[in-house]
Amino acid sequence: MDGQGPASSDDAPWLIVGAGALGQLFAASLAAFRPVILLGRHLAQPAIRLRKVDGTDVEIALARERLKDWIAKRGEYSVPALVVLATKSHDTQTALDALTPSLAPTTPLLLLQNGFQVQPRISEHWAGPVLCASTTEAAYRPMPEPKPKPKPKPEPEGDSHSDFHLSRPDVVHAAAGETWIGDLAGRHAALATVVADDLSQAGIAATACADIRLRLWHKLAINAVINPLTASHGVRNGELTRVEFRPRIEALISEIDRIMRAEGIKPPAAGWQALIDGVIEATAANRSSMLQDVLAGRPTERDAILWPLIDAGLRHELATPALTALYRATLA
């Protein structure tokens, strides 16, 4: 059974687990078109302040709960049509394990994680359909600003919301991208189409695909170069065009190319170097997600992004000195 029915129900909510940048972006975008519940670690107001790509701010009302509270009050909510796991890769299995007793065994899942670590494992063990997404949507949560010393001011006149656009947003949609959706076994094409159509209607350009494994590996190659280098050196993506980074990038790409060939992953038409250089150029002003994690003092996705390549190198008896050195130099 493909599982199209539940996810296409208009009145059943999508449960989005993980209130990071991507989880908030997806929740805020979808909330105008279908019921959404956003689950996170902390208590939050039932709204998201989103700064759109054009720089305007909007406040979107939607249901928000702590994960543990939703589990405790499970009977008060409708059965979710789809569970979107938007946590960091190292938190995904723990979040799913906590949710599992409260979900029907065949509930469809959509995985938004970086890397290629949790996707095969969950796809193999979850009884229901498991979709994977590869997305180039760019979003971030602004760093908290130091609180200025209070100064006495006269009460402002006029609209009480006059300072709306001066307030710090919860999430910034830095750049629109593309999202590809499919399942690793190729059994749920109709469900992938339904989910992609719903996302596209909500303003997140999405397409169902039959080659999601290929797309996840291609994104893994990009992330394995950009994320750890920017995080370990504390630079934005565009700084990787500096001449001192070129030998390291070329060494990483050489190892990645050999690993991909051994895994049976076709290279992009223009080659790995052109693909990665193009992303660095297109995202020059961005801080990578791993750099954002380092700056915020959060655990990084080092294992999810670098270890699948190193592990594949070990399985195929390929030397990976550049990848291994980068793994050791990157904060966990």
Rank of each mutant, 00 (worst) to 15 (best):
V79T: 15
E250A: 15
S102F: 11
M143F: 11
P169K: 09
L85Y: 08
P247I: 09
L82W: 05
E239F: 07
R121Y: 07
A262D: 10
A61Y: 00
D311F: 08
W14M: 04
D257C: 13
L214G: 04
V294T: 08
E281L: 09
A231V: 12
S289P: 07
N286S: 04
Y327E: 04
R261M: 12
P148W: 13
L166V: 08
V294N: 08
V195G: 03
K68F: 04
K147R: 15
A19E: 14
E124V: 09
T193V: 12
P308N: 11
L50P: 00
E157I: 07
Q201T: 14
P120D: 02
R248K: 15
E255A: 14
I249Q: 05
P156Y: 11
W307L: 13
T92N: 15
E137H: 00
A19P: 13
E244F: 04
Q45E: 15
S134V: 11
H42L: 11
K153L: 14
A251P: 03
G186D: 07
G297K: 10
R258L: 15
T207K: 12
A210W: 09
I305L: 13
L229Y: 05
S200T: 15
S254H: 15
W180F: 15
P46Q: 00
L111R: 06
T207L: 08
G203Y: 09
P129Q: 02
L306S: 02
I37K: 07
W70T: 02
I37W: 00
A95V: 07
L99A: 10
A270Y: 03
I122T: 11
Q292K: 04
S102W: 08
R34H: 13
V53C: 09
P156E: 07
P101V: 13
P142Q: 09
L67P: 05
H161M: 14
E255Q: 13
E145G: 13
P169Q: 06
I256A: 00
G20Y: 01
V195S: 10
P148C: 00
T92E: 02
G271W: 04
A27F: 09
W126P: 08
R74T: 12
I259T: 09
A210N: 12
R213M: 12
A296G: 08
C209R: 05
S134I: 00
R315E: 12
I37F: 01
W180K: 08
A221W: 02
P308L: 00
M260H: 15
S8Q: 06
I37T: 01
K151G: 00
L191Q: 02
A296Y: 02
T107S: 00
R246H: 14
A262H: 05
R328I: 03
I276E: 06
E281Y: 00
D91K: 15
H161C: 08
A95K: 07
P148D: 09
T320R: 12
P35N: 05
